[in-house]
Nucleic acid binder design. Structure first.
Length: 292
DNA sequence: AAGGGCCCCTGAAAGC
DNA sequence: TGCTTTCAGGGGCCCT
């Protein structure tokens, strides 16, 4: 599941290989992954253009091309792999290679997606395309990045106080903070020692500070370790990330909490599995209506 | 504003 | 062993 640290790692591994290159040919194997233009128009806009720059915003990777910008959202299982034309990525990934960008240096960039949730957007494509409009709006409404230079304390504190939502759901809301997914939301809350069911507005000043710092630390560390590979994630060179070994709670139901030894618990919140330590992350006070 | 439910999609894992 | 069912998950969308 590529979240901020994974997409950032992909950006960093792809940048030196793509920037300055010209896309000679765009091979569309599965048209449904393209949004903003039909395959022919999409190709026409992309082919022959140089890659000017790569950027990341939340979980979106943006490719700035000479004749228009592309945005890629990998959703659950998307991969962008830079390789040689003959390279064999194995039967599963071969079967799910949907778009191939052929570069002028003989390499290619393959868009692979086994779950078929991801999309490639032509950002200045057909303005009447509802899927494109939706993506542009999402991009426009993305919240601050949970890193230095993005999220700042005063604003974070104020926006937390204004929300009644459970923290787990709020951290997953891309308009609140951009780039966190299920893995890092759980890890951030563990780092901060805050239960995922706590309401945002109920946090003390001290807890809000721990969450603020915890998010930055977890994200910075995850980038440093090149992301987390629990399922399909690999970076632009096909390498897995090593933050997986440093996960404290995600996917560790029943295991001992690395801080206190209590058994990690799992519960479903907002339809997402949530992992936490019942001792380090004390549950919220029961609601007044709950009684005996 | 918040939350539940459904959908997209398919490989992996669990169940029988 | 092998077939069938369930699950996971980012995010949009609809409904209450």
């Amino acid at each position: 599941m590529p979240e901020l640290p994974e997409v950032e790692t992909i950006k960093r591994t792809l940048s030196p290989r793509l920037v300055g290159r010209t896309i000679e040919k765009m091979e569309v194997r599965t048209p449904k992954f393209l949004v903003g233009a039909g395959p022919d128009e999409f190709r026409r806009r992309v082919e022959g253009g140089r890659v000017l720059d790569l950027e990341r915003r939340g979980k979106f990777l943006i490719l700035r091309l000479e004749d228009g910008d592309l945005a890629v959202h990998l959703k659950m299982a998307g991969q962008l792999v830079w390789c040689r034309p003959g390279d064999d990525l194995g039967p599963t990934r071969e079967k799910h290679t949907h778009v191939v960008f052929h570069l002028d240096d003989g390499h290619e960039l393959r868009y692979v997606d086994t779950r078929h949730f991801g999309r490639v957007y032509l950002l200045d494509g057909d303005p009447d395309d509802p899927l494109l409009r939706r993506a542009l709006r999402t991009l426009d409404e993305l919240g601050p990045e949970p890193r230095e230079g993005g999220l700042e304390w005063e604003g974070f504190r104020a926006r937390l106080a204004a929300r009644a939502a459970r923290l787990k759901s709020l951290l997953l809301d891309q308009a609140f903070v951009a780039g966190l997914g299920n893995i890092y939301a759980d890890e951030c809350l563990f780092r901060a020692g805050i239960h995922p069911l706590r309401l945002a507005s109920s946090l003390s000043e001290e807890e809000a500070r721990r969450l603020f710092a915890g998010m930055r630390e977890v994200i910075a560390e995850a980038i440093e370790f090149r992301g987390t590979s629990v399922r399909d994630y690999v970076d632009g060179e096909g390498r897995e990330g090593s933050f997986s070994e440093r996960l404290n709670v995600y996917g560790r139901t029943g295991e001992a909490c690395p801080r206190c030894g209590a058994a990690i618990e799992r519960m479903v919140i907002g339809g997402r599995s949530s992992h936490f330590c019942p001792r380090c992350q004390p549950p919220p006070e029961p609601s007044p209506r709950t009684n005996v």
